[in-house]
Simulated assay, not measured.
Amino acid sequence: MKPAIADRETAPMDASAKSWTFLTNHARILAAVAYAPDRRIRDTAERTGITERAGQRILRELETDGYLIRTRTGRRTRYIVHPARPLGELPVPAKATCSDCGQRPAVKAPSTG
């Protein structure tokens, strides 16, 4: 018996059940940094399934393009997602920004007339 739709929406996904992803490595790194800005690059890369070297390159590209702000405190680096940066080529409204990520669009009630 299949679980109800609500159960499938909230149930964790079995990683071995699929071989593709909706998000690019850049989007995955951006989301990981938004979630944990103080995490080491090595740990962020590992959690997103890429090499540390690729993680460094992606962070540098995101910073260069204005999606991340990098600050240093002693030997630690902290990345902050620039919330007003537009998302670019995603199929979202033209004025969508990074701060719109993860927010559900408003659902319009069906008209009754």
Rank of each mutant, 00 (worst) to 15 (best):
V107E: 09
L62G: 03
A36R: 14
G74D: 04
R42C: 01
A11K: 10
S19E: 12
C98H: 03
G66Q: 03
P105D: 07
T24R: 06
R70Y: 01
I41R: 04
I5W: 10
R39C: 07
C101Q: 08
P83C: 02
P37H: 02
I5A: 12
P93G: 09
R47G: 12
G55A: 06
L30W: 01
Q56T: 09
P91M: 05
R40D: 12
R60I: 01
T21I: 06
D65P: 00
T48A: 12
E52D: 07
A96W: 10
T71L: 10
A4W: 07
W20G: 03
E52F: 00
P91C: 04
P37N: 03
A84R: 04
T48V: 15
T10M: 12
T21V: 09
P105A: 11
P110T: 05
A6I: 15
Q103H: 14
A84L: 09
S16R: 13
P93N: 05
S19P: 00
W20Q: 10
E89K: 07
R47I: 06
E63Q: 09
N25T: 05
A11L: 13
T64V: 03
A84I: 00
I41N: 06
L30F: 02
R57E: 13
A84Q: 11
T44Y: 02
H82V: 13
R75L: 09
